[in-house]
Design a protein around this nucleic acid. Structure first.
Lengths: 242, 242
DNA sequence: TCTGCTGAGATACAACGTACACAAGGATGT
DNA sequence: ACATCCTTGTGTACGTTGTATCTCAGCAGA
């Protein structure tokens, strides 16, 4: 009574934790998701195909549908799986340190799995265990500081938004490099140059032109990220009095 | 010598501004992009199909390929077109006000066109005129404040990252509502409840549970956004001494 | 009028997600 | 030991997608 495809109304997570004692369970939803993670890491999100997953596991194209409602559920599961890699900060740390660590580690995670930021909205919004573990730790770090529940959520979301946005752009660069076979930041600039040079040479963007001539660090994203992160944390500290 | 599909090596923007004087120019790249925007606004990004665009314009399925290298270029163009809606802050405003206005207006733009945040990486990274106009205004707002080119870019990117991340989540909610036909925030909570309740009832997420019982504003995203934005601006002001 | 080029159409193909019906083979009750 | 059922995995098939390629129609310049 477990994986009869469309007839099982239980949530994905419930099904995963309570699999029916079955005769021949050689496959599983997690197995599909793990191989999907492997493929996506190596070849990008577009390489994830129900057929590809099947061939990778030496199984018929439709085999996955016994364990998963559809491709969307595979993506959802992939998203949750990799978040298990993120080490949750130890107990006893202050809120600022907790959020700093989570931010830095999330960035690394996103850069390691560049497809993560490109999952469909459903996969991002649906609550999932490993993601919730992290949110829980972040929210808990505000306990006892005298701020209310709404402020806790707002503060958490603020840091998380910054991280998602900043890493998202970095990831876009990285996944574009993967698609196009570019290796360095120079390749990126070179690849985008045809579009860029025509526009910049028009003289309509003087500040941009100035930056490209004066800047020393150019696109040091790690530096930009850490600077921005400290700004956000400073701001929270000041506005919420924590 | 303009739109011979694969033989024209010029950048998209150059081609748009200098169309070849042609005998019968009834179609154009922009025409396809505009109808695409209309469809995406009404039915979401997944409704954008080369065939759909063609039928919408009463034209053969392959007609667009004379003006556009492929679907990706349509998406790129869509992204640029809607950014023209964003009113650029008037001259004479201080950097903080400029960035505040751009941030608020970008959020509104993203919520108005929920597909915008889901364009492929190429469409986000490729420099485009209307997007560059905004970046230019933001970068220029730092002139004469005594910060160097690298700091300008870092500061701009910081605000932009926060905006992108925060609005991105809001947009994910909105586009999920569009897909599922949900109308209110309660519908969202209701739709996600099957996944959520199993997890939260497990007792593994006490802080989350506490929030859902104690919070008053629940998910007031606009409030969260403005609070976060002020934090970011405060932080930049302090760290860069501007 | 002839030649050549260009805008648009028609046809075609491979790849995708997934619905559906069916077969194989342990588990179970007797 | 045997018959039964239920679950797992297969085979086949359909509709939809992006796009390569060939073809034709009609205006330009000679």
């Amino acid at each position: 009574m477990v994986a009869k495809k469309n007839t099982d109304e239980r949530s994905l997570w419930e099904r995963l934790e309570n699999p029916a004692p079955s005769p021949r369970p050689s496959l599983s939803a997690r197995k599909f998701a793990w191989t999907a993670v492997g493929i996506a890491d190596a070849e990008g999100l577009d390489a994830i195909t129900m057929r590809r997953l099947a061939t990778e596991l030496d199984v018929a194209p439709m085999a996955a549908y016994r364990y998963v409602a559809g491709k969307d559920e595979v993506l959802l599961l992939m998203g949750d799986l990799v978040y298990a890699e993120l080490e949750i900060p130890e107990a006893g740390l202050g809120w600022r340190e907790v959020h700093r660590l989570v931010a830095l580690r999330t960035r690394e995670l996103l850069l390691r799995h560049t497809w993560l930021a490109r999952l469909p909205p459903e996969a991002v919004l649906t609550p999932s265990p490993n993601r919730l573990n992290i949110s829980e730790r972040c929210m808990a770090s505000f306990d006892g500081l005298g701020i209310d529940a709404d402020e806790k959520m707002a503060a958490y979301r603020t840091v998380d938004s910054f991280v998602g946005g900043a890493a998202g752009t970095e990831v876009a660069v990285a996944s574009l490099m993967g698609e196009k076979g570019w290796a360095s930041g120079d390749d990126v600039r070179g690849g985008l140059a045809p579009q860029m040079s025509y526009l910049v040479q028009s003289g309509r963007y003087p500040s941009f032109r100035a930056w490209s001539m004066e800047a020393v660090r150019k696109d040091d994203r790690a530096w930009q990220f850490e600077l921005g992160l400290e700004c956000v944390l400073d701001g929270l500290s000041a506005r919420l009095g924590i």
